[in-house]
């Protein structure tokens, strides 16, 4: 497998963006999408997903680079099994270079991952000292180990994002942190409702609907949740979402 070099300028820009959490309009969903999208863009990984713990210490899906990985993350949560959960519970990296033979460790997850077209996984805890707030999952369609450099870069990105988020949480009080997380969890539902409406109106699948939503949000520099809300409210027409630059990522259902 050919290893793509990491774009250093883009990487630097990403670190700066991930450290910049103290803005007035900070949005947890967009912040975490930044992390998963840049992992896919900069590293040799094909998809990424991110889970954060809620108030009760339960992991919840916050961001995913595409629909396939979203389903797989949800499957982990539902079946209570998989590398992301292990990384969260142990606070250490959990990797598997060949999911086709990982059935002994995570029977249901490994089967679902292979079914979804994934061959290898690296799950990194979102951790600062003793505190683990979530986990980042990186998936690849080819078996094999992630290169050392990619792994170090991914770990650094996850660390910076964790510090950014914890710094944000520390500076704001408990009330604001709760408001943000709960609002983000509800926004995820609005996004699902909007995807359903878009899929129905445009006759496309959920992956395509998500790509359309995100393409529109990005090209206009809007928050994903804002666009979803506008689509549900009817102030942004579903057909307006078309004609925005298509995503180059995998977006199959």
């Amino acid at each position: 497998m050919e290893v793509r070099p990491i774009d250093d300028d883009r990487l630097l820009e990403t670190f700066v963006e991930l450290a910049d959490t103290l803005t007035d309009d900070f949005d947890v969903i967009d912040f975490m999408h930044l992390l998963v999208d840049r992992c896919v863009e900069l590293l040799d990984v094909d998809a990424a997903g991110l889970l954060l713990a809620d108030q009760n210490g339960r992991l919840r899906l916050i961001a995913n680079s595409d629909e396939q990985v979203r389903l797989l993350e949800l499957f982990q949560l539902q079946s209570d099994q998989g590398p992301c959960l292990d990384a969260f519970r142990t606070g250490t990296r959990v990797s598997h270079p060949d999911l086709a033979v990982a059935g002994g460790r995570w029977p249901r997850f490994a089967a679902a991952a292979v079914d979804g077209g994934f061959a290898a996984v690296d799950a990194l805890p979102m951790r600062l000292r003793g505190e683990v707030i979530g986990a980042l999952n990186l998936f690849r369609t080819n078996a094999g180990e992630l290169t050392d450099k990619a792994l170090r870069t991914a770990t650094a990105l996850a660390d910076v994002a964790t510090v950014g988020l914890l710094q944000e949480r520390a500076i704001r009080n408990q009330e604001i942190v709760t408001e943000q997380l709960q609002t983000a969890l509800n926004s995820r539902i609005v996004i699902e409702q909007a995807k359903g409406l878009i899929a129905e109106r445009l006759g496309i699948d959920m992956g395509g609907a998500f790509a359309a939503l995100r393409g529109y949000a990005r090209s206009r520099n809007l928050k994903l949740s804002e666009v979803a809300r506008a689509v549900v409210a009817g102030t942004t027409g579903t057909h307006d979402l078309l004609g925005t630059p298509a995503l180059t990522n995998r977006s199959k259902m």
Partner: peptide
């Protein structure tokens, strides 16, 4: 309510 397909289906039915 944790099942995203419930919300996707809601969106589709809305359409």
């Amino acid at each position: 309510l944790h099942d995203p397909q419930v919300h996707q289906a809601t969106g589709m039915i809305s359409g």
